[in-house]
Write a protein that binds this DNA or RNA. Structure first.
Ligand code: FES
Ligand code: FES
Lengths: 148, 148
DNA sequence: TTAATTGATACTAATATAGTATCAGATGAG
DNA sequence: CTCATCTGATACTATATTAGTATCAATTAA
């Protein structure tokens, strides 16, 4: 069971790169080469993040992408929702005719509980927090900590 | 993001059916029709569960499947591992050359923590617990609670 | 003017999930 | 002792998701 797909994985890395240099534009190309992310793939992710107002872009020479939203306000839960759809443990609720009385379904009850646990755990992890941890690690041992 | 696939979903339902009638053999066919699970699909799942010593089978007429392991000892985590592979938040650790120093990778640190939270949450849910909840619900209102 | 860049979108490839089909072998009922 | 009812084993197809590539138009700073 894989929880984070490449989408989310790459998006996190890209956001960390942008958050680290907030205020200046970083091109997709430079992020891609620096973090070993397939260029065109990354561009799609960046565009998606623009649509969700996490970042902004500037076209043309010297253009690129820049942080917009406060990194502390960007949670991994949000990124999962953007790139992998809302966290849901089971799809059973979409099936007709099986759970006539969902409110009383014990399986569903457990499922809902775990769903919210998973969500809240990922909510604790923000881009801002990751960045600070990363910077702290770099301070102690400049060559040890890497983003990816 | 879908956490439980049909594999696991169906396996849970089948185990609940078997646990409810422990001591007697239940055929794949009867489980399939009763719980709306594709017959051949279910058979593969049952065979897999035999290999993992959760259930036993008897061939021939009047044959079928029966609980072997104590339902309280069967956790959803185990079932996820059998049918969806070990819970892992990210696959990054398999990628060479990116995280030269994994021990210090902050992303990995968070990932490991969440992995264990997810695992332990699913570990709390056993077939035995689900069955008791189900039976309790049926006692209160016989028509309200269903397995699926 | 033009090279560097994003916007938009279509396409292919690889993998995972879901479901079906088939046939051999066991076994209890009659 | 045979035969319908089962499981064992395994191969196959279909669908969906994930991953990655390609293309071309529009923008812009040097
Ligand atoms: S070990 Fe995977 S991102 Fe660092
Ligand atoms: S609501 Fe889905 S199993 Fe009951």
């Amino acid at each position: 069971m894989k929880v984070l797909t490449k989408n989310t994985d790459y998006a996190i890395r890209a956001l960390l790169a942008l958050a680290a240099r907030k205020g200046s534009y970083l091109s997709a190309k430079s992020i891609a080469t620096e973090h070993d992310i397939p260029y065109q793939f990354l561009r799609r992710l960046l565009q998606e993040m623009i649509r969700h107002n996490l970042i902004v872009s500037k076209e043309g020479v010297q253009g690129g992408f820049m942080m917009q939203k406060d990194p502390d306000e960007i949670t991994v839960t949000q990124l999962i929702e953007i790139f992998q759809g809302k966290v849901q443990v089971s799809e059973c609720m979409f099936r007709k005719q099986i759970c006539g009385n969902r409110a009383n379904c014990v399986l569903r009850h457990e499922i809902m509980r775990i769903e919210s646990v998973v969500q809240s755990e990922f909510e604790k992890v923000t881009i801002g927090k990751l960045l600070r941890d990363l910077e702290a690690a770099n301070k102690v041992n400049p060559t040890a900590a890497t983003i990816s």
